[in-house]
């Protein structure tokens, strides 16, 4: 994915605030790119624009040769469903689905070409990879914070996306759990050749990144 000269402005009454002032980043297969910067530097805004969750004021986001900024909502949704994975600060799990069902929902949404049997196998394998086989029939309400986040990672990767967008995935976890989660993200995305765009304010987590991009006042420094 190539993020080219992305700009984003917000209008507040008479004043226009420019949050991103022309950012260029390229994401590579199997590489973890960490975006760091102070609060308000524009890193989360950049991630959500790259993920097609909000539009930019100018610039382009090229994914597999196509510009996301020129696509309609349905085209962007299709790409989000099939080629992107998301992990956020909160796990955002569906409260009435078990761990296993959370993953099969993602495969349904991604219109995975896998057969029913293959889907079951893929789901079981991913749950195993995040170490939650014994909790596969549990509902989110009975999971700990770390377990929930591991389910979120499994859900984000089960359909084998091309890019994983992770916005402060460890912000709500203690240090030990944060390292566990980051190790899992690093290992799994390397294994699967997935590009990762990670937003974090925790410097300890940067050890899991292949590349660190620092942002300040809407530009890469």
């Amino acid at each position: 994915m190539q993020i080219k000269d992305i700009r984003k402005s917000f209008r507040s009454g008479e004043t226009v605030e420019e949050v991103l002032k022309g950012v260029d980043i390229t994401l590579h297969e199997g590489e973890v790119t960490a975006l760091v910067g102070t609060s308000g530097s524009g890193k989360s805004t950049l991630l959500t624009i790259a993920a097609g969750l909000q539009s930019s004021s100018d610039g382009s986001v090229l994914f597999e040769g196509k510009d996301l900024t020129l696509m309609n909502q349905e085209e962007i949704r299709q790409i989000r469903a099939s080629a992107f994975g998301f992990v956020f600060q909160s796990a955002h799990l569906v409260p009435f689905l078990t761990v296993e069902e959370q993953l099969s929902l993602m495969l349904d949404v991604a219109h995975s070409a896998l057969s029913k049997k293959e889907r079951k196998a893929a789901t079981a394998q991913m749950i195993e990879q995040v170490g939650l086989t014994h909790r596969k029939n549990a509902y989110p309400a009975s999971l700990s914070g770390g377990e929930k986040q591991r389910v979120a990672i499994a859900r984000a990767l089960v359909h084998q996306p091309k890019i994983l967008f992770a916005d402060e995935p460890t912000a709500a976890l203690d240090s030990k759990r944060s390292h566990d989660i980051m190790k899992q993200i690093q290992t799994l995305t390397k294994q699967m050749g997935i590009a990762v765009l990670l937003v974090t304010h925790d410097e300890e987590m940067l050890q899991y990144a292949d590349r660190v991009v620092e942002m300040r006042d809407g530009v890469v420094v």
């Binding site: 992107f84 998301f86 569906v94 949404v109 859900r155």
Partner: peptide
């Protein structure tokens, strides 16, 4: 969230 992950 469901719309975010691509649910129609």
């Amino acid at each position: 969230i469901l719309k975010g992950i691509g649910v129609k």
